[in-house]
Design a protein around this nucleic acid. Structure first.
Lengths: 218, 218
DNA sequence: GCGATGGTTCGGTACAGATCGAACCATGAG
DNA sequence: CTCATGGTTCGATCTGTACCGAACCATCGC
C-alpha cells in the first residue's frame, strides 16, 4: 500500500542515542575504530559491535580493515546530509542539548560539518556573499561565480551541487556547503591557515584567520 | 558531552512504521484528520491518537481544530526536507519497498513532493534546464534565471532557497524543488493543466500536459 | 434534551531490542 | 610459540513502547 522508499527502518536506526552519538562523531568525515565509537557512545564493546554491524548491513557505514583494527566511516555524504536535516529539524523544534561540553566555545567558532566548514567564520563568508549580491535566494549569481573563480573556487564535474546553504545550529544562520564548502575547507587546511582539533573542532591560528579573512574580504 | 542538536529523539519518532506512514501521507502538504491518519497507518484510532500526540509535542505536526475534527499537517517544510533526505538515503542503500501499489504507475508520471512537483514530467523540466546550460552544478545561471523570469517565475523574499534539486526516487534523477518548484506546481494547478488525484498523485490532462510542455519547451 | 460520530484516556499484554558479562576468534608484538 | 589487544558471538535480563478494547469526553444534528 505504501509507495516509495521505506524510510522507517533507516530512521529507527538513527533514532537510538548510542547510534546517534556514533554517527555524529563520524560527521567529521574521518574513520574511527570500533573501540573509539564505543567510547563516544558510552557503551561497552560488545554492544557497540552489534550496533555497528546493523548500521553496516543497512548501508549507513562503510568499514575498512587495517591490521587488528576496523575503521568505520559514513558510507557517503548523503548520510551526513540526512543527519544535518534532522539537526535542523531538532533545532527548530527546540530539542537542543542544554549540556554544552568544554569544547563548545571552540566549536562555535569553527568546526567541520562532514566535509565543509561551519561555525561563526563560515557564516561570515556566506553573509558576505549575500550582502554583496553574489548570492540570491541561496543561489549563486554569475557575479558570485566569477568572484569565487578569481579566488580559485571553480565548479567541478557537476555530479555534486556546487553551492548549497546549510543552517548552522550554533549561529542560526546559513553557511556554505556543497562542493564549494568542501573546497573552502580544504583550502584552509592546505594553506596551513587552520588545522583539525579534537573532534569536529577546527583551529584557526591568528595568522591563518587573517589570511582567510583577507581572501574573502571580511 | 555531546554537543549540538539532539537528533536521536526525533529520528526515533520518525523511525516507527506507523508514524512513517502518517508522515509520508502528509507530505503532500495537506491536512488530514486523526481517523484518516489511522487508516493510512493501518492502526486503530486510540493508537493513532497516541502517536499523533507524541509527534505534536515534538513539534513535527501542527494541529487545527474544526468542529469535532482535528486536522493535522506537517509543521513546516523542514519536516518534509528531512523525510526526503531519509528517502534519498533509503534509496541508495536499497531499502525500497518491493510491493508497489496500484497507484504506482500514476505516481511515477507526476506526484507532489510536499509542495513541488516530482516524477517523470518534473525530471524532464530539470533536465531541460541542465541541457540548455541554464543550470550548472545544480544551481541556476543568470541565463536560466532570465529564462524563468520570462515565464513568470521570479524569486521571492529570499527567505527560502529559490531553486533546489531533489533526487527523484522513481526516476533516479533530480527534479526542481525550493520556491521555484512550488511555483511550477501551483502554476500547473492554477491554470487547470493538472489537478490533485488520490494521495500524492497529480493528474495531467492531455491538453494540460501539452500546455505544460509548451511553456517549458519540452 | 438525545443519539451518533470523532478523539482521548486508561489498563493490560506482548514483543522488540538495548545492554552487559563471559567465552571465543584474529592479529600483531616479543 | 606465547601473550596481549581489538572485535565478535552468545545467552540472559530488562526496559520501553506499540498495540488494542473498553470506557470516557466533546461536538454536531435533531
Amino acid at each position: 500500500m505504501r509507495e516509495g522508499p521505506y524510510i522507517a527502518e533507516i530512521a529507527a536506526l538513527i533514532g537510538d542515542p548510542a547510534r546517534t552519538n556514533m554517527l555524529t562523531a563520524l560527521m567529521d568525515g574521518r574513520a574511527l575504530t570500533v573501540s573509539e565509537l564505543a567510547q563516544v557512545a558510552g557503551i561497552t564493546l560488545p554492544t557497540a559491535s552489534g550496533h555497528i554491524a546493523r548500521m553496516e548491513t543497512a548501508g549507513l557505514l562503510a568499514a575498512e580493515k587495517q591490521g587488528r583494527h576496523r575503521y568505520l566511516r559514513l558510507s557517503g555524504s548523503d548520510v551526513a546530509t540526512a543527519l544535518e536535516a534532522l539537526m535542523e529539524l531538532a533545532q527548530r523544534t527546540g530539542a537542543v542539548r542544554l549540556r554544552t561540553g568544554p569544547r563548545d566555545p571552540a566549536l562555535r567558532v569553527a568546526r567541520v560539518c562532514y566535509d565543509h566548514l561551519a561555525g561563526a567564520r563560515a557564516v561570515a563568508v556566506a553573509a558576505k556573499l549575500a550582502d554583496e549580491g553574489m548570492m540570491v535566494d541561496h543561489g549563486l549569481t554569475d557575479a558570485g561565480r566569477a568572484w569565487l573563480a578569481e579566488r580559485g573556487f571553480v565548479r567541478g564535474d557537476g555530479r555534486r551541487p556546487f553551492c548549497r546553504t546549510c543552517l548552522d545550529w550554533s549561529e542560526r544562520r546559513h553557511h556554505l556547503g556543497g562542493a564549494l564548502g568542501a573546497q573552502i575547507l580544504s583550502r584552509a587546511l592546505d594553506e596551513g591557515w587552520a588545522r583539525r582539533g579534537e573532534g569536529r573542532v577546527i583551529d584557526f591560528g591568528q595568522r591563518g584567520a587573517a589570511a582567510f579573512d583577507r581572501l574573502f574580504g571580511l
